[in-house]
Amino acid sequence: MANKRLITFLIPIISVILGLIAGAIIMLVSGYNPIVGYTALWNGAFGDSYTIGETVRRTTPYILTGLSIAFAFRSGLFNIGAEGQVIVGWLAAIWVGLAVDAPMIIHLPLAILASVAAGALWSFVPGILKAKLGVHEVIVTIMMNYIALFSANEIIRSVLTDGATTTEPISATASLASPWLQSITFYSRMHYGILIALFAAVIMWFIIERTTLGYELKAVGYNKHASKYAGMNVSKNIVLTMVISGGFAGLAGAMEGLGTYGTISVMSGNINIGFDGIAVALLGANNPFAVVFAAFLFGALKEGAGEMPTGAGVPTELVDIIIALIIFFVASSYIIRWALLRFKKGEK
């Protein structure tokens, strides 16, 4: 047992290392110096207090979309719709941020709750369709992503503004921005949202591991027939799982809206926070705390990538290739598991 745990723990780490090695080889083959390249990546992510702040800022929504997808996955559901849920969450948070006039103690929680509710509502639709009609959630959530994107754009243009592409900044009473965090990170956009995201990881852990709801959700994920036999309401659980999963993703939208930008702009295409969450959940093996680490890794890679063209002349696309390779190695974890077991046998 202990061994299995250890292996589960080692797989993502080994995958990351293999991904980085493969990336180095690709850099070599394409005529770049991998040491210079990775130094630039490191400096871009952790070089000074500003970049560290920005890395944390990037990590924050990844944690939440990672949790969102991991949560659904524990119950055997595949929430591809985090992307759309982030958008509606973002939009709802900004809307409340702009429209409501209240002291911070009311305004901020209200805006955050609005994002959660919007994300939850958005995933309620695929949830109920799956539960009642058996429509596969992957298809519905993908469609809902497009609906979210185009409706949000339209609302930004014609409701929140008069044909502009970006809203006014929200009032300070709804903002997560932290002058203190900004000042210690040399005026990065780091904000209090990271605390919310970490707290959300604890919440997910608690729901999954300690509550009767988590017990039911996992049971449904493992064995629907046995869950039905045990008297669990499988349909209700499907809807509830989707709603909670969507809530996490909606909250990720609030991080961007209330924390990083303070506005929402017309989007020309996917914002990818939701899709990257799938990779984060996969790398974190659907465990809430591992998801936090995986999100941090993604945040660092994405943030550091910005430094690679200027610092080493390496195109940022290379970081995307490395990320893809890491995911590839996680997905083929079977091979790593097999190799590890072989290795252990050999030792004996």
Binding site: A219, Y222, N223, H225, A226, S227, Y229
Partner: peptide, 8 residues
């Protein structure tokens, strides 16, 4: 199928 959740 019904009696057990094997992964529990």
């Amino acid at each position: 199928r019904f009696g057990l959740v094997l992964d529990y």
